[in-house]
Amino acid sequence: MNILFIIPARGGSKGLPGKNIRPLNGIPLITHSVQHALASKYPKKVVVSTDDAKIAAVAKEAGAEIVERPADISGDTASSESALIHALTTVEQQGYIPDLVVFLQCTSPIRGIDDIDNAIELLLKEKSDSLLSASPNHRFIWKKGPQGFYSVNYDYNKRQRRQDLEPEYVENGSIYIFKPWVLKENNNRLGGKVSLYLMSDESSYEIDSAMDFMIIENLMKGLE
């Protein structure tokens, strides 16, 4: 079984310039995801899709191959799916035909050493077509409707303990796995039979700001 790992990383971050190569616990952010991909026991090709020469250099040094992303799918409004389709098409044209694609977001760097392979094995065991990683939700959720605010996942008139809420899960952005046809036919990372791979609460933290770097660095140190 051949597995294609795709790690998209464009260079034009407005909120935190240079985010994808900013050091996190001593190594560039993107290097964490490249190392996680390379640690998988499965036959694989690991590619980073980027429009940025600095990111490409860092990713290549970490052991990834580079797919140069065109400018028209590298802007603020470009979807991750556009980068995934371009990367998949590129490697297939080069003769590499994957059985599965693993999409890692480098802004969600907290993964256990076995998480990726365990997620792959879960998809295979459940005979699913796609999979997403998620973390448990233990919060009381409210939304605003035409008549004002209302509770979504509990009845505030009969307040429960958080532990007694019906189980809910938050998509944490860390790991997505799908068969190539899912992406090609649906223009979506998810489709067909979908599995959910559960990860820790800590894995739900994503990096969007300098403060996030500080928080995640401390979380990662605590998990070592």
Rank of each mutant, 00 (worst) to 15 (best):
L104P: 06
I207D: 09
D72S: 09
V46I: 05
V58N: 04
H138S: 12
V58L: 02
Q105R: 11
Q105M: 12
K60R: 14
I110M: 08
M211D: 13
L132H: 01
Q147K: 05
F5G: 03
S82M: 13
G173Q: 10
L132M: 11
F103D: 11
G191E: 11
F140T: 03
E206T: 08
I27H: 04
I116T: 11
K44V: 05
Q163N: 11
A87T: 03
Y176G: 00
K184G: 15
E202V: 09
L123A: 04
D99W: 00
I216P: 04
P43Y: 05
R10T: 15
P23V: 06
I116H: 02
I73Q: 12
L196C: 05
L223G: 06
F149A: 13
V47I: 14
I113P: 12
I73W: 02
D114G: 08
L131I: 03
I116Y: 05
N118E: 14
P23R: 01
I66T: 10
P43V: 15
E65T: 03
A37Y: 07
L165Q: 13
L219D: 00
F5T: 03
I85N: 02
G18E: 06
E121I: 03
A64K: 06
Y42W: 06
H36N: 14
A57M: 10
P8M: 04
K127E: 15
E68P: 01
A119S: 09
W142K: 07
E185A: 14
K41G: 15
M1T: 08
A37W: 01
E224H: 11
E121V: 02
A71I: 14
F213I: 05
Y150T: 04
A83N: 12
E217V: 12
K14R: 15
L196K: 13
G11L: 14
E168A: 14
L4E: 03
Q163R: 09
P146E: 15
A56R: 06
L131H: 03
G12E: 11
I175M: 07
L183R: 12
L38K: 04
Y197D: 05
E185M: 14
V101K: 01
